[in-house]
Design a protein around this nucleic acid. Structure first.
Length: 273
DNA sequence: GCCTGGTTTCCTGATT
DNA sequence: AAATCAGGAAACCAGG
């Protein structure tokens, strides 16, 4: 039973994106997840070998690629060399994963340029990791969901059971996140990309991590779209948000409707992080 | 097959 | 009156 009236949602959507774009471009939100993972110097041309290695690791993680058989030796190169590789080079060097890597690096190359061009963001150095990249490789309106573009991810072969890292760094104990992004991360990334998600959620107190839903049902729809759940509502989304109080991912903000605050266990929202 | 984490769904009642 | 909040209970689902 949904308590949402369609008129409420319609007004939220149309006032936000205009009549010609009645549904939010989810790809804008989605790309936030990918872009913010990469090294802060968003121009891969200037990456060191270590950063290239870090990027590879992140791509492996994100696409749940079995790293145990990945030919890392083929990527003992710096960012400049990496950027000069052609699509065919990637395929030769990385096999089926080459496709993913090529798309990723293309996006990042674009992203770096885009980042330079947009001056309106007034981003601080610590913040620019969250700078959104244009989804140049994907049709507008499509959800940028890595699994859509990468068959091996959706159906891992029996011989390569799961994520097996051929190497791991002691400080990067990444817990496998089977469902992709968590709700609170989804919310965080909307907040970190305000210019791409106008009027959905806004900071009330940036330094304290207090934020407010402006278009609660629209956000719920967006979340539902990401989870492939067309019946998502703010009612249900907010229940999930309330579960975060116990885990201290969120803190209660008493007396204010649609207002939440990031808690001590929420990462990546601070400007100085 | 069981356990677990992270929701999703549904619900009742309270508050704004 | 409607929207939102609070939180219990149960179901769901993918990974371990």
């Amino acid at each position: 039973m949904s308590v949402t009236s369609s008129s409420t949602l319609d007004s939220q959507l149309t006032s936000s994106w205009g009549p010609s774009n009645s549904y939010p471009d989810v790809s804008m939100v989605m790309s936030g997840y990918t872009s913010r993972l990469w090294p802060r110097d968003s121009q891969p041309q200037f990456w060191t070998k270590f950063q290239v290695w870090e990027w590879l690791q992140q791509v492996m993680d994100m696409h749940q690629i079995d790293a145990s058989n990945f030919p890392f030796q083929n990527f003992d190169i710096d960012g400049h060399q990496l950027c000069s590789l052609s699509y065919q080079d990637f395929i030769r060097a990385a096999g089926s994963a080459g496709h993913i890597l090529f798309h990723s690096i293309t996006e990042l190359k674009w992203g770096g340029q885009y980042h330079v061009d947009i001056g309106q963001l007034d981003l601080k150095p610590e913040y620019d990791f969250s700078c959104p990249f244009p989804d140049v490789n994907y049709p507008s309106g499509d959800i940028y969901d890595p699994s859509i573009h990468v068959a091996p991810v959706a159906s891992p072969t029996p011989s390569s059971p799961d994520i097996k890292r051929s190497f791991s760094r002691p400080h990067q104990v990444k817990k496998h996140n089977p469902r992709g992004t968590h709700l609170w991360e989804f919310i965080r990334d909307i907040l970190l990309n305000p210019e791409r998600n106008p009027g959905l959620i806004k900071w009330e107190d940036r330094t304290e991590g207090v934020f407010r839903f402006l278009k609660s049902e629209a956000v719920a729809q967006l979340w539902g779209k990401k989870k492939n759940n067309s019946s998502m509502t703010y009612e249900k989304l907010s229940r999930a948000m309330r579960y975060y109080y116990k885990r201290e991912i969120l803190e209660r903000v008493d007396g204010r409707r649609l207002v939440y605050k990031f808690g001590r266990n929420a990462r990546g929202w601070r400007e100085s992080e």
